[in-house]
Design a protein around this nucleic acid. Structure first.
Length: 478
RNA sequence: CGGGGCGUGGCUCAGCCUGGUAGAGCACCUGGUUCGGGACCAGGGGGUCGGAGGUUCAAAUCCUCUCGCCCCGACCA
């Protein structure tokens, strides 16, 4: 276990980020450029995310399946916008079994093409619809500049691919899954997000339109945390997927796809982490509570351990994830720091002084407050406190976002905000790609999305002054 | 792909300018004393100095080539 010191957030945010990952042993750089090794601590978070999401997918009627990693190159070319969007970043396999392949195989950057190729055979009639499939897998996108979790050449994700009889039904599904992502972010990640529609420039290659949830990180930059696409009939037409309607006519199928990736681990780090390391929200922590026994003499140790065994037994019955750190070679102070950088939400300290009073010391990771609690019914106290931590992480993140959100009607204020503390800027936009592009060139801020909750409001485009009907969010993004 | 930097035990780095046969801190192992916010003492293990070639009696050090990584700019979940 190498000692890792963490750069202060205020000093160098991106170094802080990589330091936190090293300190918490979440991931390593791989021998292959742009790839990462997700270490057990990092993977544990992903597994928790998977569990939560998978449950919600099942609740909304989806089934898991698995499609191949290799996709015939020709498939990718069938949808014009799609190939244009992904061609620059696909990895291609040209050889196999010692000889050149007849047709190169691309390693999936996303699976729309290979999945819709199958859907052609799966869908005959309106009775086969809707078709609601999800898959958990890895994908590869050859990125120029990579950062652990946020942008790597290979990453893990889930991709949902559904087929519907009508445009409206597909739209409903697209928004339903966006809502699932929102709920996941808020309830499990303690991360407030803004649902909205992507601009034409930022939408998924091959989609009719794209929705996203956007979150604010600890440096006030935006992170796209999940996307849901309405693909209309684009892929059905490309792969000739039609169905017979109730009336006996033949129509192309409507599609959606939606994905959320290991990037969320990066979001978690940047949304909640502090100078001491990552803070894992209780609902995503495998180890929710770490118990640090403190003792000097062997007989003291025995007494302490007896008490620990007693209350941890109760933890098991109520399903609290805990770990007892009984390593003898480390001092309590070392262990406090060790578990803090790993982000365990709650620490329990028990020593001789506590035994005398039948209590323990509870130390919250989120605000580093220490309080005493009785050993009787400790499991209830702990459950309550974990809930309180979950809630307070959300509130803190929301407060931070509010504090860094501005309504701006004067383009001249953009640099001041963006080069200062940064943040989300709600401004009017006429809807033209030129204005969007010019703002990006001039300020490095992009339109994150057109918020769904943004009320209709007459205004003038921040850039060109033309008529605008609602505000959009400008921000610098990851 | 353009600009900048760096490759020396697991990690961070010194040594290189001025060649002389590898060193520190942390981590690791053993024993002991410790233990309520990163303990201490003693002992110990571990490196073909990114790779190849060259100069030299002698190369981590000088020369040539090569590979890789990191940071900054053009694309993106």
């Amino acid at each position: 276990m190498a000692e890792v010191k963490i750069t202060k957030r205020s000093e160098d945010y991106s170094r802080w980020y990589t330091d936190v990952i090293a300190a918490a042993e979440l991931a390593d750089y791989a021998p292959v450029k742009g790839c990462m090794i997700i270490r057990p601590n990092g993977y544990a978070i992903w597994e928790k995310m998977q569990q939560a999401l998978d449950g919600m997918f099942k609740e909304t009627g989806h089934q898991n399946a698995y499609f191949p990693l290799f996709i015939p190159e020709s498939f990718l070319r069938k949808e014009a916008e799609h190939v244009e969007g992904f061609a620059p970043e696909v990895a291609v396999v040209t050889h196999g079994g010692g000889s050149k392949l007849e047709e190169p195989l691309v390693i999936r950057p996303t699976s729309e093409t290979i999945i819709w190729n199958s859907y052609r055979n799966w869908i005959q009639s309106y009775r086969d619809l809707p078709l609601l499939i999800n898959q958990w897998c890895n994908v590869v996108r050859w990125e120029m500049r990579t950062r652990l979790f946020l942008r790597t050449a290979e990453f893990l994700w889930q991709e949902g691919h559904t087929a519907h009889a009508t445009y409206e039904e597909a739209e409903e599904e697209t928004l339903r899954m966006l809502g699932v992502y929102r709920r996941f972010a808020e309830e499990f990640m303690a991360l407030p997000v803004i649902e909205g529609r992507k601009t034409e420039k930022e939408k998924f290659a091959g989609a009719d339109h794209t929705y996203s949830i956007e979150a604010m990180m600890g440096d006030a930059k935006a992170l796209q945390a999940g996307t849901s696409h309405h693909l209309a009939q684009n892929f059905a037409k490309a792969f000739d997927v039609t169905f017979q309607t109730e009336k006996g006519t033949r129509e192309y199928v409507y599609a959606t796809s939606w994905g959320l990736s290991t990037r969320m681990i990066g979001a978690l780090i940047m949304a909640h982490g502090d100078d001491n390391g990552i803070i894992i929200p209780p609902k995503l922590a495998t180890t929710q509570v770490v118990v640090v026994p403190i003792s000097r003499k062997p007989e003291e140790r025995q007494h302490v351990m007896r008490a620990v065994e007693k209350f941890t037994l109760a933890f098991k019955t109520v399903g609290i994830g805990f770990k007892v750190d009984d390593r003898e070679q480390y001092s309590p102070g070392f262990k406090f720091n060790d578990w803090e950088k790993r982000g365990v939400p709650l620490r329990i300290e028990v020593g001789p002084k506590d035994l005398d009073k039948n209590q323990v010391v509870l130390a919250r990771r989120d605000n580093r407050e220490k309080t005493s609690a009785s050993q009787d019914g400790l499991e209830r106290t702990v459950v309550d406190m974990l809930n309180a931590i979950q809630k307070s992480l959300y509130e803190r993140a929301l407060e931070f976002r509010e504090k860094h959100t501005y309504r701006v009607d004067d383009y001249g204020k953009f640099p001041e905000i963006l080069d200062g503390e940064g943040g989300f800027i709600w401004s009017h936009w006429c809807g033209s790609g030129e204005c969007e592009e010019r703002v990006k060139d001039e300020t490095k801020a992009t339109i994150r999305n057109i918020p769904r909750e943004s009320p209709a409001e007459e205004g003038k485009c921040i850039k060109c002054g033309s008529r605008s009907e609602r505000r959009v969010i400008f921000a610098r993004a990851y």
